[in-house]
């Protein structure tokens, strides 16, 4: 091997080490920032399918399959009446449901609660989207959808093709939610 080619391959090796380091950093960042580093990257589609395959009773005890909202921008919010931050953000969801409902946006609440308390709060809030009753089992469900610590509120946003486009632990800023909805709706300009 000539001195020149040794130097070149050293250069390549050096660069490869830097790239490896950068790659490891990127991977760590992916893990740090959430679930972007899921093996295969197919988690969002699978999670979306799992969610759309669910069926839960509504406030009247009628089973509601989430598949009925397939094709819409679906915003699934895990909440409870005992969760103050949940109660605080729901009036905004009511507003957005009214504004964007006709354009194919559907909010669905899954309550980690019992039906009577949910009915009372829904009436008080004039809730204009379905509140499904999940009970404490819904915490495990939300964990399977990426809610690492099992706290509330937890929101999963599905794009129209059924893939998870965003998850949020804790309240979503109204402006941010509006931007996300805009981006997920067709002909948004």
């Amino acid at each position: 091997m000539s001195a020149h080619s040794v130097a070149v391959s050293r250069g390549i090796a050096k660069r490869a080490i830097w790239l490896l380091l950068a790659g490891v950093l990127a991977l760590a960042a992916g893990i740090y920032f959430g679930r972007g580093a899921d093996p295969g990257g197919g988690g969002s589609k699978a999670d979306g399918q799992a969610l759309l395959g669910l069926s839960l009773p509504d406030m009247q005890g009628q089973e509601q399959g989430l598949a009925q909202w397939k094709g819409k921008v679906l915003i699934v919010n895990f909440w409870a009446t005992w969760c103050v931050p949940c109660r605080e953000e729901m009036p905004e969801f009511v507003k957005l449901q009214q504004e964007f409902g006709p354009r194919g946006v559907q909010f669905v609440g899954i309550a980690v609660d019992d039906p009577a308390k949910v009915r009372d709060f829904a009436a008080e809030l004039k809730l204009n989207y379905p509140a499904l009753i999940g009970g404490y089992g819904a915490i495990e469900l939300s964990k399977s959808l990426g809610n690492r610590v099992g706290a509330l509120p937890y929101t999963v946003i599905l794009a129209r093709d059924g893939t998870v486009s965003r998850t949020q632990l804790g309240p979503i800023k109204p402006n941010e939610l509006r931007t996300i909805i805009d981006q997920l709706l067709p002909n948004n300009h």
Partner: peptide
Amino acid sequence: LPLAVLFAGASAPASADPKLLEP
């Protein structure tokens, strides 16, 4: 390239998760 990977990793799917503790 790695920077692009970094941003792709951070945004697909986006997940806002403040560093909260398990209960």
